[in-house]
Design a protein around this nucleic acid. Structure first.
Length: 445
RNA sequence: CGGGCUAUAGCGCAGUCUGGUAGCGCGUCCGUCUGGGGGACGGGAGGUCGCAGGUUCGAGUCCUGCUAGCCCGACCA
């Protein structure tokens, strides 16, 4: 993308309403614009990242054997009356009437809809196990939206639902989700720690929340530092294997890690003192096993192997996709702006032309830009007729992890400069080498 | 929903106390010089002062009502 042709309305000054770094930086980097309290328009740069995260979530869900679909944002109140949650959910649910005075709602979650779909089309244990998911906008009418997209009213979320014939199979679904979630967050450059949590209004037996450590987090968390050394990496986990998934779950749930809701002083004190950590965290996902709560209430049953009709065991699992953008920024920024991890960066590399109009400099930039694109990368070329300082400031603000600086001074010596946004470290090298280096960096992302 | 606060140009703000032609910085547009970390100079565009009503010769400023937004708390992915 040529910056001269892109829409990137960056702000030099801090908007007054933004209190935390991610909110401030998202506004300044021209990613979002508030439409009303807790509701945002996603400008091109923000939208690009949102799509990237969505794709990562899709890829990891499909890899785990889950089936993508899409349910509507507006739902009829009838199904919610059936489950008993129309009354139970309270003011957080946005209720609407259509022209026929029918009660509708903007879905805060989709257990009722999915259970209805399931019960009309699935009747036999032979169809199980099955996990369906979608990534869709949700709405929760928060009393006080704040922190930008981290606590919006409208939010983009992956929610999935597993249907299993018995407890063991459902437990495996739970474990499998934990593994796939760990992988998802890791690809995004995040460390999200699974912590034992309260089940809340969804209602469940087993549940873990995934928290990203950040000072601005809403939850107080307590954990054993040993858990921060764990990595999924390239580990080959067979998602169909009960044992493989159970092993990972055990590994990640053995070190102590809890939010203040479930914190236990005695257990925490038992950790060697040098490994005790107390911090704050941003919740970016949660997995639940809730047994037959919805299937019994709504008659979602299958005929079992022995011929009797049994309610299916269910669980639900969510990843707050839009919120993740805020969480990533909270975990990865400095005083100059955002620092995107390679896995989610909106553009792979920035190209800064220090003397737009100079034929040699233009030619070198074009060669880099076209070269990177030909190799399948997505560079952002600042071809504007601006001064160097402004270009650097913009690049730092929007946080591309790598920047190639091209100017007459370097070109006289046959070199351009490759700079890491994270470390600030720069290296001079010929155009060809810079190309190869960037390609090599992204070969592993 | 309780407590606190704000609303004036795209963004950040002054002006309100003490009523009298709506300002500053940044951004933006044009020109010249500049050219490796938000440069300099000159010129321009851009505002029903959140909305409605009232007081007054005259309201951004005073009064009443409303709306929207922000912060703290309780609540929450």
């Amino acid at each position: 993308m040529l910056l001269s042709r892109y829409f990137l309305p960056v702000l030099k000054e801090n908007p007054a309403e933004a209190q935390i770094a991610s909110h401030r930086l998202m506004l300044r980097a021209g990613m979002i614009k508030q439409s009303s309290a807790g509701i945002y328009s996603w400008l091109p740069l923000g939208f690009k990242i949102l799509r990237k995260l969505e794709n990562i979530v899709h890829e990891e869900q499909v890899r785990a054997g889950h089936i993508p679909m899409l349910m509507p944002t507006l739902q009829s109140a009838d199904l919610w009356r059936e489950s008993g949650r129309y009354e139970a959910y309270g003011q957080e649910m946005l209720r609407i009437k259509d022209r026929h005075e029918r009660d509708m709602l903007y879905g805060p979650t989709n257990e009722e809809l999915i259970t209805d779909i399931f019960r009309t089309h699935v009747g036999s244990y032979k169809d199980l196990p099955m996990t369906l998911y979608h990534i869709q906008w949700k709405f929760r009418d928060e009393i006080r939206p704040r922190f930008g997209v981290m606590r919006g009213r409208e939010f983009f979320m992956k929610d999935g639902y597993n249907f299993d014939v018995d407890h063991d199979s459902a437990l495996h679904a739970y474990n499998r989700h934990l593994v796939s979630y760990l992988r998802t967050y890791e690809r995004m450059g995040l460390q999200a720690i699974p912590m034992r949590a309260d089940s809340g209004p969804i209602g469940g037996v087993d549940t873990h929340e995934f928290l990203v450590l950040a000072d601005t987090g809403e939850s107080e968390v307590f954990y054993d530092s040993a858990i921060t050394d764990l990595k999924i990496g390239d580990r080959d986990v067979d998602y169909d294997s009960y044992e493989d998934c159970a092993t990972v779950l055990k590994e990640w749930t053995t070190p102590y890690a809890r939010t203040d809701e479930t914190h236990d002083d005695a257990l925490f004190d038992a950790i060697p003192q040098e490994r005790q950590r107390k911090s704050r965290g941003i919740e970016v996902g949660q997995i639940f096993y809730f047994g037959t709560k919805y299937s019994e209430a709504m008659g979602a049953t299958v005929v079992s192997e022995s011929g009797e009709r049994v309610p299916v065991h269910m669980g639900s699992h969510g990843i707050g996709v839009s919120r993740l953008i805020g969480a990533i920024i909270e975990a990865s920024h400095d005083e100059n702006g955002i620092i995107w991890p390679e896995g989610v960066t909106p553009f792979h590399c920035g190209i800064v032309n220090l003397k737009q109009g100079d034929s040699e400099t233009n030619a070198a930039c074009d060669a880099l830009y076209n070269g990177l694109r030909a190799l399948g990368l997505d560079p952002l070329y600042d071809d504007r007729k601006e001064r160097a300082g402004g270009k650097f400031a913009t690049m730092d603000l929007i946080g591309l992890p790598w920047r190639i600086t091209v100017g007459p001074r370097g070109l006289n010596n046959g070199v351009v400069e490759l700079t890491s946004r994270r470390t600030g470290h720069s290296q001079e090298m010929p155009v060809e080498t810079a190309l190869e280096r960037v390609v090599a960096i992204y070969a592993s992302h």
